[in-house]
Write a protein that binds this DNA or RNA. Sequence first.
DNA 1: ATAAACTCTATTAAAACGATAGAGTTTATG
DNA 2: CATAAACTCTATCGTTTTAATAGAGTTTAT
Lengths: 171, 171
Amino acid sequence: MKISQKGLYALQAMMMLARHYNQGAIRIRDIAYEEGLPEKFLELILLELKNARIVESVRGAKGGYQLRRPPSEIQLSEIIRLIDGPLAPFGDAEQLRTLIDRDAEHRGLYQVFLDVRDAAAKILEHTTLADIAGGPGAESSRSRKRRKKKEAEGGVLPMVVHGNVPRGKDD
Amino acid sequence: MKISQKGLYALQAMMMLARHYNQGAIRIRDIAYEEGLPEKFLELILLELKNARIVESVRGAKGGYQLRRPPSEIQLSEIIRLIDGPLAPFGDAEQLRTLIDRDAEHRGLYQVFLDVRDAAAKILEHTTLADIAGGPGAESSRSRKRRKKKEAEGGVLPMVVHGNVPRGKDD
DNA sequence: ATAAACTCTATTAAAACGATAGAGTTTATG
DNA sequence: CATAAACTCTATCGTTTTAATAGAGTTTAT
């Protein structure tokens, strides 16, 4: 699974709309300016998000874009699948399951791919715009979950300070 | 993280060499034939794997390729990082950590990306060629782990039968 | 009527991807 | 020592994808 520049732009724009949820429609130009995104390109992205019924537009003067649902009901996986396709690192989940069934020789490999996809899906389907948008209205389900996990692991540090865990070799 | 066709070829070739570990050098032509890969393309891939010291070549007549280490000591992550780059869905781990530190506005998003990368790394760094190569010499650390996990979850089915868990919407 | 917006289709430049070609070098072996 | 079997290396190529821009069209507030 790869998140393209376009996918990042989409996520940024959606975070911005999440921060301004319930404040009426926001103009493309304002989103582009606030987030530092190319305006014309963003236009296409928002159109796609609109066709997927994730955002809605208000046309004409005083128009703009807004979320169709509250930020807490929009999963990151929806946006990523729309813009960048399947979460699996190769093919998609269904295809992988078929290969696992039929290609005995490579079953093990495809099962690993599917495991990776499931791990990504678990995270991205359980994280919503409300969880990451920041600004007023933060502290949602996800941030609570992450903090708990760190505490359970013996983490003591406040949020972003990346502690202890393996961290030797990198990507 | 995206695994390209080239990356898949590399993994297949390595699985093949793992199955033939300790049987001397295997010719490119034989790997390509057995795995159904384009020979000339595979040539380049093996060269890259050799430069990364994962395989070694024997030159001249009767030459070929073989693993430099036992299959149980070659992580899938090594091969994937070499051919397809970082495991993170966007950028690489170090870059993400920097962004989490410096870009307050998007910290939450980048943290999610890093979580996804960590989940993928956990799987791909703990799975070796021995775990997936199949043929004689299978049943290694990983397959034991997976079975345990399934059993713990109440899974009763033999290996590949994908049970119960969420599986509704797909990639 | 007009300007402010979104809508839609087309185009483009650059990069990535998948693959092939061919000349060069090394080595076993007869 | 000639030769064929291999690996080595650099170049090229066609296609697709990516990131972005352009511009004409449509809708709506005022």
